[in-house]
Design a protein around this nucleic acid. Structure first.
Lengths: 214, 214
DNA sequence: TATTAAATCCCCATAAATGGGGAGAAAACA
DNA sequence: TGTTTTCTCCCCATTTATGGGGATTTAATA
């Protein structure tokens, strides 16, 4: 009997997963969490075998949760469940120690199969995911889109959010009580780290990689 | 017995909804569609009482689907089901004739309740949704965020997509075989229609309103 | 057919962002 | 403690975007 912790900030998805899983005989207790903090707490308090983890949570990033859970020896298996099939995402999650990665367009059959595989000690990635990974590997000349995202510093994330709020460099500088020159420097770092050519790229990556939720 | 058509491009959500609804006695046949075209086809071919509609579909926007379904006399009831609780979204959907609007953090109970209310001929909006609407109504001085989105023209959407692809004005002009001046004019229209101050705003709105899927 | 909407292009000017370089002080880390 | 990262600030110059006008042609529509 497998005890599973369902993590998603959308209740309907939790309920849906619950409905899918309850029918199966091999599934034991089902727990649920709507945010990162709850996830960590429940994982410590209860005996959880598997975590079905949505990456985009309001308080913590899936990456952080994954790493935090994996610190423990008897840590549960983790299958990431997300909307975006983004190579950067996937790479980052694998690096964080995830055991499986499914897109939310996965059906019931594949979900159950993935759970079995992962509980058997192996890793499971859905077809689309492996395709993306292979595509990333086969393009060593252009590692941009498939490359890991360099970690942004606190200040950089702060400025990125203000950029997304449509503030100009001067306005950001005024708000943070720093010089416009400094803001410009941070903007350059953001462009470099996120492999963006301009503000459009920054905002796009921020959405794609869920940087706003970190 | 209520026949329901489930529309979402994520199979797992369809399966989840199916699991939620199958248990209930009042629910009849369940159909499913992954995109706008399928939705229209099934709605015409089968006897559908209710459509649970996700707004962000790959081919058509929820707005268009809603309007198209509502053309018919015996049209089914429609409940929009979406991730984003965005006042602009909601306004647009109500304008399109939707009968209910739920966020995906809605639980099973509320979903079944909403179905009953809507099938009874009334409209149902979840708590968060009405809060957003009220907030929008109570701020007549600042109708920006809650205002309806002005419809973008084909060309404007085309240019918006290229902006999001990080192309500059000149690059866009070259790609579309038009003058940079024209691109500038379209950019101005985009900024005005989307109430954006700069490119960051354009990209953000494009994501928030799902304009990329239209 | 009259009217409206869309797409095209131009003028002007200013504001804002990008690209490349360097450099010091503070904080975090090993 | 020494090392690295982060945060801070500046120089230069160029590119790009924004703001406010106006105008014509074509296409759709009432």
């Amino acid at each position: 009997m497998i005890n599973i912790l369902l993590v998603d900030d959308h209740q309907i998805i939790i309920d849906g997963l619950r409905g899918l899983l309850e029918e199966d005989d091999s599934i034991g207790n089902l727990y649920e969490a709507q945010n990162g903090l709850q996830t960590i707490q429940i994982a410590k308090a209860e005996t959880i075998d598997l975590v079905l983890l949505d990456i985009n949570l309001p308080d913590k990033s899936g990456f952080d949760i994954c790493q935090e859970l994996k610190k423990d020896e008897n840590c549960p298996k983790i299958i990431a469940l997300t909307m975006h099939g983004n190579a950067g995402y996937i790479n980052k999650m694998i690096k964080s120690g995830v055991d499986g990665y499914l897109l939310k367009n996965t059906g019931r059959e594949e979900l159950l199969k993935a759970i079995q595989v992962v509980m058997g000690g192996n890793r499971y990635f859905s077809r689309e995911v492996t395709d993306l990974l292979v595509a990333g590997i086969h393009e060593p000349k252009k590692p941009k889109s498939s490359d890991f995202i360099q970690k942004l510093t606190r200040r950089e994330k702060e400025i990125l959010k203000l950029i997304i709020d449509e503030l100009t460099t001067d306005e950001i500088a005024a708000q943070l009580f720093i010089s416009p020159s400094t803001v410009i420097t941070h903007r350059k770092s953001l462009l470099r780290k996120l492999n963006a050519k301009n503000v459009a790229g920054l905002v796009k990556k921020a959405f794609e990689f869920g940087l706003l939720n970190e």
